[in-house]
Design a protein around this nucleic acid. Structure first.
Lengths: 148, 148
DNA sequence: ATTATTTGGTTTCAATATGCAACTAGTTTT
DNA sequence: AAAACTAGTTGCATATTGAAACCAAATAAT
């Protein structure tokens, strides 16, 4: 059996995960965000099997998250680069990173950090807020289904 | 082969995905956020196989994202509820939702929406910002590895 | 110009994960 | 007391993953 698709869900979270929730997909997007473009560079940096990388790149291109362009250095090869849709995953990436920072490392354990390139300072912590700026927690939100 | 773990990565994104990046895991967390607590309710709502649900719940409990508590209605069964660590996934959930809202639905296609429970209005759109409040895109950030 | 190496894959194979259905022990409802 | 529900477990077929071998085209080295 193929793993079950969430493509037809009425929930945006489920549909998003259908596309970017496969093993490796978001890590490919992560590396694309820091400028990785070539097949071999994704392979080396991620340490993943070529066949899986091929499949994930294909899906990400089909879904409009990456696009294939002729290599910028004039060689005959192609490069993969983020589309606007792909770049718009930055907030997802940053929230995952901030959660991981907080919970997935023991005190003093080293990890990579994401900085504002202008002043090399950490980013602001992302919070869920109401339109008038109140910070919201799980208990402050509600899901409304279509047609209600 | 087991799928490769990202547990030992120095990247917080990778470590986060190691825990919550398996198929179904974030959808279980999503439902837990709207108050789903019982095994059968997760099963019904998600339409997933019981054995997988069992495995995911077990992992999420082991990782401290959910906790098992005696049923609140006095029955002999247990309930699963979010820990603080689990609740802190709200920003991840909201960014995934906002991205899905934007890209995964055709114009006019209906989907569920997440509202501020107080005034039933949509949430503010989440953006990545510097500490001084500038909105940042993919080109405005840099990753720094440990020991540099 | 010829050879060697790199790149970007595809193919094959074994191990694991997913999904489905059947089964079950304990609990709750009728 | 019987029926139905809950929260699983088990067994099986199929999919997905990962490793390694293979390959053609492009590039670099000699």
């Amino acid at each position: 059996m193929k793993h079950k698709s969430h493509q037809d869900s009425i929930c945006p979270v489920a549909r998003s995960l259908d596309v970017i929730g496969e093993w490796w997909s978001l890590l490919i997007v992560r590396d694309a965000m820091i400028g990785v473009k070539r097949f071999s560079e994704f392979e080396r940096r991620l340490g993943m099997a070529k066949n899986i990388l091929t499949a994930r790149l294909k899906r990400l291109v089909e879904e409009g998250i990456l696009r294939v362009v002729p290599a910028s250095d004039g060689s005959a090869y192609n490069e993969y680069e983020l589309t606007k849709k792909g770049e718009d995953l930055l907030p997802v990436m940053v929230t995952l990173r901030q959660w991981g920072d907080k919970y997935m490392f023991r005190a003093g354990e080293e990890h990579s950090v994401l900085l504002d390139a202008r002043d090399h300072k950490p980013l602001a912590e992302i919070a869920v807020r109401s339109t008038d700026g109140r910070k919201l927690g799980v208990g402050d939100v509600e899901v409304v289904l279509p047609g209600r």
